[in-house]
Design a protein around this nucleic acid. Structure first.
Lengths: 189, 189
DNA sequence: CTTGAGATAGAACGTTCGGTCTACAGGTTT
DNA sequence: AAACCTGTAGACCGAACGTTCTATCTCAAG
């Protein structure tokens, strides 16, 4: 039987890295991560093979959380596909409006990691495709004539909200996007 | 009379830094910049005070160029404000579609530079405000009922195109955004 | 011719980078 | 008891970081 002594080094590292890579960017130093997690240097390389592996794993974890957040948001909005899709932008308004909002983690990672072979890119790409699929499913249920096209437009609006939320805080981009999302849904009738 | 022996170190440095900070991000090393520009180390600190000053000056220069590109695009589209605004998204399709497109330089800089006091942030903020003003002027000429609101929405669409163009290449975000821009313009009648 | 400004080359500063390594402590399993 | 696994602590590596410095060269102005 294994003794329960709180989260192990692997968990602590993921937790601290999730925090620090968000506030400081993926350029944070390994030393800072180790210190924040109170973990030995060696543990990082044992568990993740290196900094890149840790970053990729952090993103894998947060994408799963964020995808679940989308699902939860839509579930809470009821059965109507239209209401469920618009609810996403209300949720974005909350997120972008938080005082500690520092931009989209995935967009920042993709722009910061110049190497196209970095494992993080595959993680973010898959995530975006899953969210796109989420939107498309609702659009199909809504009876939209071009669900694939419209899903791409909604995703573009989400990207715009997250970008504008970071670079032009206080301009209420989520509400603007919600209005445009309404046009997208109406256009499919 | 000064002899003309090609661009001086200051110009070469700005040129090389513009190129490298775009392809590699603002995290490029000073050594790489100096080598690419064939400039003495000291010249950087004489002219720009340091790396941060150089980065800010590079952005100042490219924002001026990009603003002029917006103006030129709109000018070439004729007199009709609607055509002029939609032309912006055709232009974005060109830019985002280029094989060497690596994302929006300003968005990347803002997300990469965690320090809110970095001089680059002021440069990008001013630039966005100027572009927003450009849009608003056209919307006023168009007789839009809410020019300020609509300008914000158009800027959000631009942000979305540049973000999606970098993270989901090949999905034609500019065309999607152009369609949405049409809705924005129609909504003001 | 002399002066001085501007540019060059490059050594060197201390710090931090990501990563490897050894030494050792605490349990669990055999 | 012995072997083993997982973790901590920290020295250490070569490289790159941004910055400061001295020394030399070029060349137009005085």
């Amino acid at each position: 039987m294994t003794t329960r002594t709180g989260p192990g080094p692997r968990e602590r590292l993921l937790e601290a890295a999730g925090e620090l890579t968000y506030t400081q960017g993926v350029g944070v130093g390994v030393d800072a991560l180790l210190k924040a997690a109170n973990v030995a240097r060696r543990s990082l390389y044992e568990h993740f093979g290196g900094k890149d592996g840790l970053i990729a794993e952090v993103l894998r974890r947060t994408t799963a959380e964020d995808e679940e957040d989308y699902r939860r948001t839509m579930r809470a909005a009821g059965e109507d596909p239209r209401a469920r899709l618009l609810a996403v932008f209300d949720r974005l308004a909350e997120i972008v409006g938080r005082p500690d909002f520092r931009g989209c983690r995935y967009l920042a990672a993709d722009l910061a990691l110049a190497d196209p072979g970095h494992p993080a890119h595959a993680v973010t790409r898959d995530y975006r495709e899953r969210v796109r699929g989420l939107f498309e499913d609702e659009l199909v249920r809504l009876g939209h004539r071009r669900p694939e096209h419209a899903a791409g437009q909604l995703l573009l609006l989400v990207d715009g909200v997250l970008a504008a939320g970071a670079t032009r805080p206080g301009t209420g981009p989520a509400a603007s996007a919600r209005e445009l999302a309404g046009y997208v849904l109406d256009a499919g009738n």
